[in-house]
């Protein structure tokens, strides 16, 4: 079985928001639904000794996803390969998952009355391709792959570089990892 994950290499991310647009366009999202914002921290420090980092965000595909636990309809699900997704037909738009998610990764789509989220582009992944945001990134700052495969690019990278996860204290066990400089 696979266990999918993503690494965001903030050492090379330039905050260009290309991933944001690629996701939106290819997933046909309304303008105001953003699965993967990219935030900027800084420049911090005082001119001219400065530092700046960009943090690309998306659903963390938590191993212990509070959003799934919170969902009263069973629309929110976690696949065996770790991908957390919403089955549109079952969703009633109660937003319990929105409130449960610590990462702002769930978005009510008012046009259809349901909540939607990043699903690691599971259709593409199932077809053996990379998620849109990964493919579009000129910097290759987003690395997607299978952590159960010890020889995958992502496994090798996580083994060789120090990485952190966001809000680890909440116990959600994110499968999105950040390499910071």
């Amino acid at each position: 079985m696979a266990r999918y994950a993503m690494v965001l290499d903030t050492r090379i991310c330039i905050g260009c928001h290309s991933c944001t647009v690629a996701c939106k366009i290819n997933n046909d999202l309304p303008v105001d639904m953003i699965y993967n914002p990219v935030t900027t921290i800084g420049p911090t420090g005082v001119y001219p000794n400065l530092h700046m980092t960009h943090i690309p965000l998306l659903c963390m595909h938590c191993d212990n996803p509070p959003c799934v636990d919170a969902c009263p309809t069973g629309a929110s699900q976690q696949r065996e390969d770790g991908i957390v997704w919403v089955e549109d037909e079952k969703c009633v738009g109660c937003k319990a998952c929105v409130m449960a998610c610590p990462y702002g990764a769930r978005h009510p789509n008012l046009e259809v009355g349901i909540v939607q989220k990043c699903n690691f582009c599971m259709d593409l992944v199932d077809a053996g391709e990379e998620p849109h945001c990964v493919k579009t990134c000129h910097q290759r700052a987003r690395i997607f792959g299978d952590l159960d495969d010890p020889n995958s690019e992502i496994s090798l990278l996580l083994n060789s570089e120090r990485s952190v996860r966001l809000l680890p204290e909440l116990g959600t066990e994110p499968y999105v990892f950040y390499i910071m400089d």
Binding site: T73, G74, A75
Partner: peptide, 16 residues
């Protein structure tokens, strides 16, 4: 709810 007509579905996940 976003889809009030589907409200019955909220009874479906015993774990939630």
């Amino acid at each position: 709810l976003g889809r009030p007509l589907q409200a019955w579905r909220v009874f479906m996940n015993p774990k939630a």
